[in-house]
Design a protein around this nucleic acid. Structure first.
Length: 575
DNA sequence: GCCGTTTTCGGCCCGACTGTTTTCAGTCG
């Protein structure tokens, strides 16, 4: 089930949309949008807050706090229901069509009575849009195209997994970097912030002449369509339906441009407000004096932040979750980095469902420069893996033989236990004691009650041999929601028992996610960033786990697989 | 509707591109 925060976020966002559609005060609509986002991302369960507590959430004032309380106690907000009554639900559906916004949607409804995508298609077919002011033949085409795209994107909201976006972005950056006149090229946007899914890719180029880059991107083999083509910006759609926006900036504007296009939007608004308070104006072209219009700086992100009294803020923190305030106090966390990771603590081989042999996995891991590496194949309770005591003990022999043979990397022999319906795991304590570490994860019975799921995870934490809870929510992005356990209780149990929570770096999982990490950290939990690699090609997924850990404000000390082996072993020893 | 070391009123981030316009509204990020 959705957290109350998510539910209220959706309700407030709906109200914001309806205010915009009905032509209400645009600032009021934005106020509701801001409050919706703030509540959705707020770490505390809002159903536990009173009016005073609610008003401590940014952008939540008296009016919205009252509406939230009303919603939480009655499930209704009269003001919202009145507005709903005036506007059929299908009208709101219209603004989900690209190129259709609240104004056009309302014109369609008022003038033609259109209140669904179906009716809109009929109206276009009957050429009824031709008579409307502001609607021309191209508008019709764009709407038809937009409907088509929205349908193809389906329920995923058109976002793709981070690794797929990263592949495309790195190819494009390589291509444009090699184009003559390129003085800088990088991807920005949500990809640079390492969000778990990516809506579109933003690529920046620093150059004095933009033409060659606009032509280069339009000519890429996987460019299916040029959506917009201008002097400063070109947007294309790839053959896989991914939108890429290319911006070419004067080299002197690089820092301000990179800052602007990295976002997030909420972070940008925050620092622009800061700029205004200093008597400046900040745009993608630089930081300017508001009055004289004279440029102060824009060459690097560091320069721009510094003039606003801030240290450089890592992109993964730029989500308006307090990073600006922390920066002003010089209290930004020293974030974990890729190079801090000393080993991977959750990996598989072809002894169970992995694709590569033990030797190949170990060789590939050593090549990554790890100082230790754990092999954690599935245990017997996942019976399709056909694990036996004899097989895992034989594997242990081979692991011991390989230990230290590859660039002196130390090997840990472990297992990924299955957390059964009652919280039990595969082997009794005396057998588990033979492992260097045990990861324990939920693999089935996802639909138990909240109480059962919670008790199940807590019992696993209480097992003295379980050191890490693997992919704690078991979600698969775009395919399966996470289990409905009371994770605050689970986090508390992890902290109490000294059990680490995994940040599973597989792009389909990213589990825990950034918001869960922020919540868990407040309980004093430790984390393990693991790839759950089933092949050598999965080992590089570590970067997505580290990015997610950064988004959760984690430092080296929070993450057990950045620790020296001795300290790690102490953590892994039976509790 | 929210917010406040210039303000409790009067602001609210800022700019690019498209399509319909002939000076600008709407949408998007």
């Amino acid at each position: 089930m959705a957290r109350p925060n998510d539910e209220v976020e959706a309700v407030l966002q709906e109200y914001a949309d309806l205010v915009a559609i009905t032509g209400g005060d645009a600032f009021k609509a934005r106020a509701y949008e801001k409050a919706a986002r703030a509540i959705g991302g707020f770490p505390t369960d809002i159903s536990t807050l009173d009016a005073e507590g609610l008003r401590e959430i940014p952008h939540v004032g008296k009016s919205i706090a009252d509406k939230v309380l009303e919603y939480l106690s009655t499930g209704r907000i009269p003001a919202l229901e009145e507005t709903r009554a005036a506007i059929p639900p299908g009208v709101r559906e219209l603004i989900a069509v690209p190129t259709l916004g609240p104004r056009k949607a309302m014109t369609l409804y008022e003038e033609l009575g259109v209140s669904s995508v179906e009716q809109l298609l009929d109206a276009i077919h009957d050429k009824k849009l031709r008579d409307l002011k502001g609607f021309g033949p191209r508008t019709e085409e764009n709407i038809l195209h937009g409907i088509d795209l929205a349908r193809k994107a389906g329920g995923s909201g058109g976002r793709i997994l981070i690794d797929a976006a990263m592949d495309v972005a790195e190819q494009i950056v390589a291509e444009l970097s090699g184009t003559a006149g390129c003085e800088g090229c990088a991807y920005a946007g949500s990809l640079r912030r390492m969000r778990e899914t990516i809506g579109d890719i933003d690529v920046l180029v620093a150059a004095t002449r933009s033409g060659p880059f606009m032509e280069a991107i339009a000519a890429l083999p996987y460019t299916a369509e040029v959506i917009a083509h201008g002097e400063k910006k070109t947007s294309i759609r790839t053959t896989k339906g991914l939108q890429v926006d290319l911006r070419v900036l004067p080299p002197g504007s690089w820092g301000a441009g990179l800052l602007y296009f990295t976002g997030s939007k909420a972070h940008n608004i925050r620092i622009r407000e800061l700029a205004v308070r200093h008597g400046y104006k900040l745009s993608e072209y630089g930081l300017f004096h508001a009055k004289s219009g004279r440029r102060i700086t824009s060459a690097t992100e560091e320069d721009v932040y510094a003039r606003l009294g801030l240290p450089w803020i890592p992109p993964t923190l730029r989500e308006d979750r307090g990073e600006v305030a922390a920066g002003l106090r010089d209290e930004l966390p020293e974030l974990v980095e890729d190079g801090d990771i000393r080993g991977d603590l959750h990996t598989h081989t072809d002894l169970t469902d992995g694709l590569a042999s033990l030797e190949d996995m170990v060789t590939a891991a050593a090549r990554r420069g790890y100082s230790y590496y754990a092999v954690t194949d599935h245990a017997p309770d996942l019976y399709m893996q056909r694990m036996t005591d004899a097989k895992i003990l034989a594997q242990r022999e081979r692991v011991r033989e390989l230990d230290g043979k590859h660039r002196r990397m130390r090997l840990l022999h472990g297992a990924e236990l299955n957390i059964g319906p009652d919280g039990e795991v595969d082997w009794p304590g005396e057998f588990l004691a033979g492992f260097d570490l045990c990861v324990a994860s939920v693999h089935s019975h996802f639909n138990q009650s909240r109480a059962e799921l919670t008790r199940r995870l807590v019992r696993a934490c209480e097992n003295p041999h379980v050191s890490v809870i693997g992919h704690p929510t078991t979600r698969l992005i775009g395919k399966r929601p996470g289990i409905d356990a009371d994770f605050d209780t689970v986090f508390e149990a992890c902290a109490r028992t000294g059990t680490a929570l995994e940040i599973n770096a597989h792009p389909e999982r990213i589990d825990l996610c950034d918001e869960d990490i922020l919540r868990a950290k407040r309980y004093g939990v430790k984390f393990a960033v693991n790839t759950d690699a089933h092949s050598t090609t999965h080992l590089p997924y570590m970067r997505y786990g580290v990015g997610t850990a950064q988004r959760g404000w984690l430092t080296k000390d929070d993450i057990i697989n950045t620790w020296p082996l001795q300290r790690l072993r102490r953590f892994l020893s039976p509790k």
